[in-house]
């Protein structure tokens, strides 16, 4: 019984020091995903970008150019349709489409379910194409080994400074470089501003359309898979 103020309450105020990340449950599921990937010797790469930056086209070219001794798998995240998955399936690569509906990002639980729809035992490299969005996906760890953000030349060189959270935890892929002559995109500025956020960031410049710069990107993937460096 409360004897302090005479209110008649039989309870007391309990203060609990929690100090826990609010997305700790997602982080835990992401750790489980990572263990699953490691257990199968799979390198997992989370591709993030705005809609239309060229994630699916990059994957199509990567499928063509990657050494055929390595097996790919792809998980597609989109609010609606399985059009991206169809493009990948047409190239003979195992793919699973996550249709997120209104959700603007993938989380670790969605990835977990999707991973079990793929033949994990045969895959060396798993690409996760996140929902096209430079904001929300950045807040959710998936358990992949690497985050890669695509920034297409037509989006403008100010995006790393405007969307710091997503660029901070990722390598950078400047895409559609064949369009550089038609824009005032300043490559040095974009790279400088991105490196402030993440000094260790690896940066690639490529055009999946013309093939320019694809060699470096593919070489980096070969290095990662063959050396188990992920």
């Amino acid at each position: 019984m409360c004897t302090e103020c005479g209110c008649g309450s039989k309870g007391h105020l309990e203060i609990i020091e929690v100090e826990e990340k609010i997305l700790a449950a997602n982080d835990e599921r992401a750790r489980h995903n990572r263990e699953t990937l490691d257990g199968h010797g799979i390198c997992g790469i989370n591709l993030m970008s705005s809609p239309g930056a060229g994630k699916t086209t990059l994957l199509e070219r990567t499928i063509e150019l990657l050494d055929s001794k390595f097996e790919l798998g792809v998980i597609e995240g989109d609010p609606e349709t399985d059009r991206d998955a169809e493009r990948i399936r047409a190239r003979g690569v195992p793919v699973h489409q996550i249709t997120t509906g209104q959700a603007c990002h993938l989380d670790a639980a969605m990835l977990h379910e999707a991973m079990h729809q793929l033949p994990l035992g045969t895959i060396d490299l798993l690409f996760v194409e996140n929902v096209g969005n430079l904001v929300c996906p950045a807040a959710f760890e998936l358990g992949t080994h690497l985050n890669v953000v695509l920034l297409s030349i037509t989006e403008g060189d100010d995006k790393p400074a405007k969307y710091p959270t997503v660029f901070r935890k990722a390598d950078l892929l400047l895409t559609k470089t064949d369009l550089l002559p038609y824009t005032d995109f300043n490559i040095e500025k974009a790279i400088r501003e991105a490196r402030v956020l993440n000094p260790q960031m690896k940066i690639f410049q490529l055009s999946a359309k013309t093939g320019e710069g694809m060699k470096e990107w593919i070489g980096n993937l070969h290095h990662k898979i063959s050396k188990n460096y992920f």
């Binding site: 309870g11 203060i15 990340k21 402030v196």
Partner: peptide
């Protein structure tokens, strides 16, 4: 200077909860 590294500030943390607990 813009020649800097920025660290920290990535997380949203639940610091503390206050609740009424019934003693009886």
């Amino acid at each position: 200077s813009r020649n800097v590294d920025a660290r920290g500030g990535d997380d949203l943390i639940l610091e503390r909860l206050e609740m009424d607990v019934d003693d009886d």
